[in-house]
C-alpha cells in the first residue's frame, strides 16, 4: 500500500491489547482447568449406608441413603408426614415459613405444631434458597416441595451431592403415595401402615359419597374453593383458588363439588369478582388463617353480590386443611369439606 508503505512507521508494534488478550486466555484456561480438576475429584459418599432409589413427584430418579439420620424438610406438609410417621428425631431443618417461625403456615393447629418442636436453628430460608444454611445442617437427605425452585434443588443435588426428593402431590391420592414413598426410605414400624390405612379410609368414604350422589342423580354443587383474597383497592382484587393439576382441585372434586376453576389454564389462578359472578357458584368455601378472615373476604370484589353469599352458603374452613398437601388435609380437611358440601351425606 503506497500510502502507508512510504511512511517510516509502517512496522507497527503489537499492541498491549493483543498481549492482554493472550494473557487473559492463558489465565482463563488455567482457572478453568483448575476448576475442572477440583470438580472432578471424587466426592465424599456416605460410607456403609445402603441406598434406596425412588422416583419423586417430578419424575426425578433419586438415589437416597436408606434410613437417613439427618433430614431437612422444606415444607410444612412434609414435616406433618414425618411427625405422623414418628420420624421427628430425623428432622434437623425445616423451611422458615414453617409454623414455629410465624411464617406462612402460622395457623397450623397449635397443639399439632407444638409436637413438632421446631427451633429457630432449624430454619432454612427458601426464597431465595439460603444454600449455606442448608449445608450447615449437614443433611443426608433433603425433602422439598416446589417452594424451592427445581433449578436450585438440582444445584444442591449436583454440586453438594446431597440427594433431594421433591414431594409435590398433584392430587389427594398423591398425598398417600408420598407417605408410602417416605415409608420406603424409613423404618416406621406400625405407624406407617396405620397412617396409610386411615387416609385410605377417608378416601373410601368419598367413594361411598360418590356412589350415593350418582344413585340419587344429584347435581354436584358448583363450588368456589378459595384460600386467599385481594380486597378491592389492592392492585389486583380477586380470589385465589386452585386450577387444574393441583391437589386442591382434586380435593374439591373428591369432596363432591364442581369447581368453577376446573377449566382455567393457570395452576394457581386468581379469579376476579366478575369471573365468580359469571360462574355463580352455589357454594363458597373460604380458607381462613394467615391473618385472612371473613372480614377480609367481605372486602373482596363483588363478595356481597355472590349468590352463595346471599343465600348463606359461604363457609369458612381452616386454610391449613386445604392448602398443605399433607396427611392432615386427607384426615381432617377432606371430611370437613364434605361436611360443608354435603351435610346429609356426612352425617
Amino acid at each position: 500500500m503506497s500510502l502507508n508503505g512510504a511512511v517510516p512507521g509502517a512496522s507497527r508494534q503489537v499492541s498491549l491489547a493483543l498481549v492482554a488478550v493472550i494473557s487473559l486466555v492463558v489465565a482463563g484456561g488455567a482457572i478453568g482447568a483448575t476448576a475442572a480438576y477440583f470438580e472432578l475429584r471424587p466426592s465424599a459418599t456416605h460410607p456403609g449406608a445402603s441406598a434406596v432409589t425412588v422416583t419423586d413427584d417430578l419424575g426425578r430418579t433419586v438415589t437416597a441413603p436408606s434410613n437417613p439420620s439427618r433430614v431437612v424438610a422444606l415444607s410444612p406438609s412434609i414435616v406433618d408426614s414425618l411427625v405422623r410417621l414418628g420420624l421427628r428425631d430425623r428432622l434437623v431443618g425445616v423451611d422458615c415459613s414453617s409454623p414455629a417461625f410465624g411464617g406462612l403456615s402460622a395457623d397450623y393447629d397449635a397443639s399439632q405444631t407444638a409436637a413438632w418442636h421446631l427451633t429457630s436453628a432449624m430454619c432454612v430460608q427458601v426464597s431465595p434458597l439460603n444454600s449455606e444454611a442448608l449445608v450447615n445442617l449437614s443433611p443426608t437427605l433433603v425433602l422439598s416441595s416446589t417452594i424451592v425452585s427445581v433449578s436450585a434443588v438440582q444445584e444442591i443435588a449436583n454440586t453438594l451431592h446431597i440427594p433431594v426428593i421433591m414431594l409435590q402431590p398433584v392430587s389427594v391420592s398423591g398425598i398417600v403415595t408420598d407417605v408410602q414413598l417416605l415409608m420406603s426410605l424409613f423404618p416406621t414400624g406400625s405407624l406407617g401402615p396405620t397412617l396409610v390405612a386411615s387416609m385410605q379410609r377417608e378416601l373410601g368414604n368419598v367413594s361411598v359419597l360418590d356412589a350415593n350422589l350418582s344413585y340419587n342423580d344429584a347435581q354436584l354443587p358448583s363450588l368456589l374453593l378459595t384460600y386467599a383474597v385481594n380486597p378491592v383497592g389492592s392492585t389486583a382484587p380477586g380470589y385465589w383458588t386452585f386450577g387444574p393439576g393441583t391437589f386442591g382441585q382434586s380435593l374439591a372434586e373428591l369432596a363432591g363439588g364442581s369447581s368453577i376453576s376446573a377449566n382455567v389454564t393457570i395452576p394457581w389462578p386468581e379469579l376476579s369478582g366478575s369471573q365468580v359472578l359469571l360462574a355463580a357458584p352455589s357454594l363458597i368455601v373460604y380458607g381462613t388463617g394467615f391473618g385472612i378472615d371473613l372480614t377480609l373476604y367481605a372486602q373482596g370484589p363483588d363478595w356481597s353480590s355472590f349468590t352463595a353469599v346471599q343465600s348463606g352458603h359461604a363457609y369458612a374452613i381452616d386454610s391449613t386443611l386445604i392448602t398443605e398437601p399433607g396427611p392432615t388435609t386427607v384426615l381432617v380437611g377432606l371430611p370437613d369439606l364434605i361436611g360443608l358440601l354435603h351435610p346429609s351425606a356426612h352425617s
Partner: peptide, 29 residues
C-alpha cells in the same frame, strides 16, 4: 405459568448468586 415451580421468581427478577457453582463460574468466565 411456571408448571412445577421450576423457576424461582425472586431469582430471575431480582437476581441472586446462590446458584453459583464451579462449572458455572467457568462458563461465565
Amino acid at each position: 405459568y411456571n408448571p412445577f415451580g421450576s423457576l424461582q421468581v425472586s431469582f430471575w427478577l431480582l437476581g441472586g448468586l446462590t446458584g453459583a457453582t464451579w462449572d458455572r463460574v467457568g462458563v461465565a468466565f
